[in-house]
Design a protein around this nucleic acid. Structure first.
Lengths: 223, 223
DNA sequence: TAGATTGTTAATCGATTAACAATC
DNA sequence: TAGATTGTTAATCGATTAACAATC
């Protein structure tokens, strides 16, 4: 629980990219990397990277660069990836199944501790290493297993109701995949993924004459 | 193919949200909406909305507001959703299956014209209304069916190779779900979805003391 | 007409980029 | 030591917000 005041969303969203890049460098056996090198790999200005990191401390060595392992650890801690929080997925449709099998969740240090659904036909079936449980027991399961993050993968119509139940059960954060505007208390952070934005904006760029270089975004950039 | 010069990514990314909101208003039978009303629903400043729209023309009536049906059409056209382009999904793992069943693709006016995979066990199986075809025929299929958008849902290691094949086959845009930095020619727009960014940033907000109101983003905002 | 709301220009705010002293 | 690279302050750039004249 580090202090933090007004770190911009843009900066927070770049941290996971730094983290992934550092993990790759580790895999490649690279021990030291300069902001220049990181910037080349991520298509981000070295100045930007140094600035972002400066919000959280001093991680580099002047004249040398950053120790990859060390910086990876530090950013992991900043992102809270060392908490190994328990996660529950609510809704075992195609998307829920994809998320349940998504390597990223465990690779980032989270534990998939429950998979819930309302459909009697689905309840009891195996998904990866877990069995789907009845959403009727949501409150007990969240509390007993100390589940901190709820992943909403139910149809849009059911999403708000699931969010309400999660909040009532003491969830700490919500990762929402339903295309609705969730209403949750201001102290419960949540991130909504809206795939239709990505596809629509791709459509936009296809429809319009594309100038020389097409830089689509920070997050989606050609990095 | 409308003219466009330097519309910011921030603006382009808001258009799909306006579009969705207008579709909802249509469903609700609302015929006229002011930027004020749209702003309330989307948690976006009315000024921002009017500014965004102004890049593309004059769509409202002073003293009245916007005709919902009309504006929805206009934004749909701007986004290129009236093109009804053919789409191919490459990779029929859990994610590919989720995307093949994702309503959003058709709801936005695209047509799922091919599903490809390299795995002999998967080839020939039915997914929704289509059968999985052999990725070996990628080039022919893309060309023959006039497929414009390729969706990459293969493992990270195979993504660049698939992207290369798509480009060689004449694809016009790529929607990439593999966590890699794709290298494609500058005239081929692509959008990469990286779920780990969303989960990591959620983790960040959970880890740090959350100030009064937690505004997570434009795209991910509590709208 | 009076009230409402757009389209657009001007002001503000915040984020990115440049520059450079500190120092490994 | 000389060269390289950080951390950080200052300058720039761009996006958001505010204000308001035009007008339905």
């Amino acid at each position: 629980m580090q202090e933090h005041l007004l770190i911009s969303k843009a900066t927070v969203d770049r941290l996971p990219r730094y983290y992934r890049c550092l993990r790759q460098l580790t895999d490649e056996g690279v021990e030291i990397a300069s902001s220049e090198e990181l910037g080349r790999r991520l298509a981000i200005n070295p100045e930007q990277i140094r600035k972002d990191l400066a919000f959280f401390g001093q991680f580099g060595k002047k004249g040398v660069g950053y120790y990859v392992a060390e910086l990876k650890e530090s950013i992991g801690t900043i992102l809270g990836l060392d908490h190994h929080w328990n996660v529950a997925i609510i809704g075992m449709g195609h998307l829920g199944a994809a998320l349940a099998n998504y390597q990223g969740i465990t690779r980032l240090g989270f534990r998939l501790a429950a998979i819930l659904d309302a459909n009697p036909i689905v309840i009891g079936t195996r998904v990866g290493e877990r069995r789907v449980e009845d959403i009727a027991y949501l409150a007990e399961i969240i509390a007993e297993r100390d589940i901190r993050i709820g992943v909403i993968a139910v149809p849009a119509a059911a999403a708000q109701s699931v969010a309400d139940k999660l909040v009532a059960a003491g969830i700490r954060g919500i990762w929402n995949f339903a295309p609705v505007k969730l209403r949750v208390p201001p102290n419960i952070p949540f991130v909504s993924e809206d795939l239709s934005v990505g596809l629509s904006s791709l459509s936009y760029y296809l429809s319009h004459a594309v100038p020389e270089e097409t830089e689509l975004s920070d997050k989606n950039s050609r990095d």
